[in-house]
Design a binder for these strands. Structure first.
Length: 230
DNA sequence: GGCCAGGACACCA
DNA sequence: TGGTGTCATGGC
């Protein structure tokens, strides 16, 4: 266990003791991480698994296979992941970027300095901050924290941040309180997702089994009107 | 059968 | 800059 400080460290510790190591990202290759990061946009991971299985089942999760695959066929295969036509377009845009900028070489891409590559990724159509950071952390092993809906919701309900905190602010907050280590960022994000998926749903503000203990009581203290909770 | 699930983009004021 | 509509499947 790395040295931890502040309340963030305590949250990490509680979650780690409750869930154990998550072993993220659930993928067999860097390319699979990239595809999964796009597919999971606005969707729980369980929806993505079937789409990934479809691609694997057809033997189409290789770089050149995906590059050659017609967009419409790709859209059909990833249907279970929701917004499939848009996501097919996004995957194609990402592959086009890798092809054009790095001649299809992921190793070369991930040798690019973090801030430079992040900026490039954000320039690709369909790649926003969370998707870019997921790719950088989980495929590129770069020390950057991935913020998602769960992260904001959990820290808001703990009374630590504003409800409408921006992506960059939330990321700065975490990174300022947690040592810049790839393994730490990897595990913490995965643990927050585990908690979020289990009990911090949007319309279920109260949860009796939360391993963070009383975070939902804090939720009422964080400025939420009581009738919205009850 | 309705509702909800790890975003990102376009468009508008 | 911030709010809103759009995308559009599958499981509970």
């Amino acid at each position: 266990m790395p040295e931890l400080r502040s309340i963030i460290g305590q949250i990490y510790k509680n979650l780690y003791e409750h869930y154990g190591p998550r072993g993220w990202w659930p993928a067999d290759s860097q390319l699979e991480v990239i595809i999964g990061a796009i597919l999971t946009q606005a969707v729980a991971w369980k929806n993505v698994e079937k789409a990934i299985e479809n691609l694997k089942g057809e033997g189409l999760l290789g770089y050149q296979d995906l590059l050659d695959l017609p967009e419409s066929k790709l859209a059909d295969l990833i249907k279970p992941a929701l917004y499939n036509r848009q996501k097919a377009k996004k995957i194609k845009a990402m592959l086009g970027f890798i092809e054009l900028q790095y001649q299809g070489q992921l190793e070369s891409m991930f040798q690019t300095p973090l801030e430079v590559l992040r900026s490039q990724l954000l320039g690709v159509w369909g790649i926003g901050p969370e998707t870019a950071d997921s790719i950088l952390l989980y495929a590129g092993h770069k020390a950057i924290f991935v913020v998602d809906t769960y992260t904001k919701r959990i820290f808001y309900r703990l009374g630590l941040v504003e409800e409408n905190i921006s992506y960059a602010e939330m990321q700065d907050y975490i990174q300022a309180h947690l040592a810049r280590q790839v393994e730490l960022y990897n595990e913490f994000h995965a643990l927050l997702v585990a908690l979020g998926a289990e009990c911090c749903h949007k319309k279920r503000p109260q949860c009796l089994k939360c391993p963070l203990k009383n975070c939902c009581q804090e939720y009422t203290l964080a400025g939420i009107r009581k009738q919205e909770v009850e």
